[in-house]
Design a protein around this nucleic acid. Structure first.
Lengths: 122, 122
DNA sequence: CTACCGGCTAGAGCACACTCAAGGTCAAGC
DNA sequence: GCTTGACCTTGAGTGTGCTCTAGCCGGTAG
């Protein structure tokens, strides 16, 4: 027992619902900053990494590319908060724009569906 | 002069802002129904195809896969309006769900941005 | 006649985001 | 001391959606 402050890659995989393969791949791509190793060269993670990967999920949900996640991760690693904010703000705007487009497309789809409905019996 | 009722692939490419390559690839994937050929085996298109490709753009904007576009195109080719409607309605729901997720993610990003803002000087 | 344009097919190549296989290390438990 | 399990690295393979190359044909203008 005791206060578990760090854990291995298997545990991180369970906590973030990713495969161990994927986590190593993410790290190789530069998406995971602040990864320490123990004496046996095994990766050690903390709750910070769980939260970071959860946040990456949100960025992914909003269609951020791995390339941009890598840029953001690099800024986190260097602590450059100004640039972090700029990147995130730019992403926010592109997401908002994409959502406006999707809304328009959805409206068109709804008009089509209404049209189908017009000739339905029920 | 005269009423131009059909045109070639180059013109379709210009009208739909795609490359000729891409249009041929779309057709090979089964995404473009009702394509006739002239005596020289050249593809002939009409305004119907322009509208169809514009609609495919909307489906793409809403992240429909080529696989599903192909299914929809096949239903168009066979005139099965009932199944067309079912497919489109299912897509509509998945888009709505994705947009809800994106909205949540956007809200989280906005909270992060607010946090950055908290420590800014201006 | 010949250059050019637009079109044709088959198939190779590419960017992205994983996903997994092969072969090995290392510590703990029996 | 041997097995088990978690971990390691390198690198190959996969699915999606294009994008382009090579080599060819056929009609028109100079």
């Amino acid at each position: 027992m005791g206060v578990e402050t760090s854990f291995g890659i298997g545990e991180l995989a369970r906590r973030t619902k990713r495969s161990v393969h994927t986590i190593r791949w993410y790290e190789a791509q530069g998406l995971i900053p602040r990864v320490e190793r123990d004496a046996g060269r095994r990766r050690q993670y903390t709750v910070w990494h769980v939260e970071w990967l959860n946040f990456l999920d949100r960025l992914k949900t909003t269609a951020m590319s791995v390339r941009d996640m890598k840029r953001y991760a690099a800024l986190i690693a260097r602590g450059e908060t100004g640039e972090q904010e700029a990147l995130l703000r730019a992403h926010r705007e592109s997401v908002a724009a994409r959502m406006r487009e999707m809304n328009e497309a959805l409206a068109l789809i709804d008009r089509k569906l209404k049209h189908y409905g017009r000739f339905r019996r029920t």
